[in-house]
Design a protein around this nucleic acid. Structure first.
Lengths: 246, 246
DNA sequence: TCTGTGCCTTGACCCAGATCAAAGCGACGC
DNA sequence: GCGTCGCTTTGATCTGGGTCAAGGCACAGA
């Protein structure tokens, strides 16, 4: 990984302050976190941790996007989590990583060595409480994704992914998407396929099809404009909304 | 639901005592739980809660099996969780159920009204800590299932489900499955299909195929004997093991 | 004993999405 | 400018699992 020696933000001024695992902490508790935290940055495509490897830190995403993926021996790959800013990686009390963690864009992480974090957590109920909330939200999101993987068509899957990305992107600016929205896709076609349980060819074809039907417009390969977000929501096939707003 | 007036077990003598949400509680804490808990039983097929309904209790499964399912407007159904004895349903702090909760066998639940449970949780860190552990385990299980839904073949899906059921069944007797094992399927073919993202016809065909290949034997429709558990594990396609042992 | 009812199995056919193959299109180094 | 490398698109064909349809089996109630 890249060292990031010269970057340091006081927790009080952190952009993810009120959504991350530290959200419930008071000033004195933040001061303690400030002392043990450190930043690390990664380039798009870098692997932060390999499944099965020792993982001696936990971390919050500050900026950028990462994925959690599982791989079968024969190479079949499934992404099981998308990590956006404020999301948490790592499990207190666990030795080894159960997934590959991969940066899909340039990525900045706020890290804590595991042991000090566990100690702090034992002394600071606010952290454990917030982690429980976040884990329950992730569980809901995972189950939402199970519905997508098990029962949605390829077109619905793509629309659902776009909805999620738009929502998470909007939530960075503390708003909900509505009317005309645009955003960057933080994933390659292949990474999208791995998240959606499709092949990259099918992803490409369905994106072309949504474009042909005027549901989205592309600028380059990665920048998406959605002229009418409600129509996209309908394509996603959820009953009335595309899932959690976080 | 059925009332269950005459059933009451002291927490100290409860069969799920050391695995449920109360696992970390001390005698004095158990006494408090004892005071507010109540039992409810349900028959196979009964719906405990409808998605969207108010859910004013949380509960642990004492015996039997339940499912969490999501349904799209057009009827497509995906089961997103299988609840075995000691598993927990309900989320402190949440008003409404996000899933249908359905008994797939006769079911006994140990329930707490939400408010008293939340109060107790605020005073008793052991409960929140255990709930965090359990939620993290469920998240891992959900992500394991995402791999299954997104990337496994129908045959691997069936084998994986049988592995999970065998493991959870064995864990009730505090052992791990090995060699020749047998157990009852707690699900109809249709419920299996909804969990695996298949149709019931495909489930039936794949079970017949596993039977033809000698991987399993059936007694009636529901009782399964696996002559060689390792062979079944191989069919499940996971790298070396079928997932968490809990 | 007969008949319904709820599951489950099996067969025939079909199609959404996978697979195989070939270009297209920037961006970047030389 | 020009090759090449990574990513993406598009086309042609194939196939695993879905869909539609017909029975089978076991148990319950009359």
């Amino acid at each position: 990984m890249l060292a990031t020696p010269n970057l340091s933000v006081r927790c009080g001024a952190c952009p993810i302050r009120h959504r991350a695992v530290c959200a419930k902490c008071e000033a004195s508790e933040l001061a303690q976190l400030d002392e043990v935290k450190y930043y690390r940055s990664f380039e798009a495509g870098q692997v932060l941790v390999w499944s099965g490897d020792r993982m001696d830190f936990v971390a919050s995403v500050v900026s950028g996007v990462a994925t959690l993926t599982q791989v079968l021996e024969d190479g079949r790959t499934q992404t099981v989590g998308l990590l956006f800013p404020s999301d948490f990686v790592g499990r207190p009390g666990r030795e080894r990583a159960p997934y590959n963690v991969i940066a899909t864009t340039d990525l900045l992480m706020c890290c804590f060595r595991k042991k000090p974090f566990e100690d702090l957590m034992a002394r600071t109920p606010h952290i454990g409480e917030r982690l429980l909330e976040m884990t329950l939200d992730e569980l809901d999101a995972a189950r939402q994704w199970m519905l997508l993987l098990g029962r949605k068509t390829a077109r619905e899957k793509i629309a659902s992914l776009l909805v999620i990305v738009a929502q998470r992107d909007a939530s960075l600016h503390l708003s909900a998407p509505k009317g005309k929205v645009s955003f960057d896709l933080p994933l390659t076609r292949e990474a999208m396929a791995d998240y959606l349980g499709l092949t990259l060819e099918t992803v490409s074809r369905q994106i072309s099809s949504l474009k042909r039907d005027g549901l989205i417009a592309l600028e380059g390969k990665r920048h998406i404009t959605v002229p009418d977000f409600d129509r996209l929501l309908e394509e996603a096939g959820d009953d009335s909304d595309g899932g959690h707003l976080v």
